[in-house]
Amino acid sequence: MNKVPQSELQPGIQPALAAYNLTKIYHSGEVEVQALRGVNFELYPKELVVLLGASGSGKSTLLNILGGLDLPTSGQILYNQQDLSKASEYELTRFRREHVGFVFQFYNLIPSLTAYENVALVTEISPHPIAPEAALELVKLGDRMHHFPAQLSGGEQQRVAIARAIAKQPDILLCDEPTGALDKQTGILVLEAIENINQQLGTTTAIITHNTVVASMADRVVNISDGQIAGIRNNAVRVMAKELEW
């Protein structure tokens, strides 16, 4: 293993999830894309991290690999001393089912299921879920839980997606451009929902965004550029989501 630059890591604290020397090469059509070029990254319990980067910087790839959606070309991902990069398909499935919640830019709700049912889709297979109603209450959608995705606004759909992600009480919540498809006001509502989850439930949270303003609501901000970590800074003060301006 290469020596890990200390500046990127915090010694002494056991990370909730860690990645070392990650590389990822995609073959998209005839083009070979090096999406990650040796990334070292640790996610500490209960913190809220924002991964900042331009489009194509490799941040989504990193998130996907951290969440067990994809496997790295090389490198390690450690969760509870287990190396996910060597995990079997079955182990990855268990990992996603029991420990990770996802929020996607395009919500990815199942159109044929109501908000409630979209959440229940996940709670049915989770070991310690909270009730779907409760999850929807957390994102302030208790009154619209029997609506189908087509009957909800974009922000509401994204909040359903958040409820769906946290209903299983995940150890880690991963959000990929959760506000990317939303206007500012709606985006803030969504960020507030994520912030609440992080603070009230203490869920370790990573948010991917290209919006630098969002970074100020994080404990830590990780800059990603060209498949590498360009810098990490700690925010002395977390700005409340509702006070964000852009």
Partner: peptide
């Protein structure tokens, strides 16, 4: 998506 939620191949 179902896989992302942790549904297994068999399910």
């Amino acid at each position: 998506l179902l896989k992302a939620f942790g549904y297994g191949n068999f399910q």
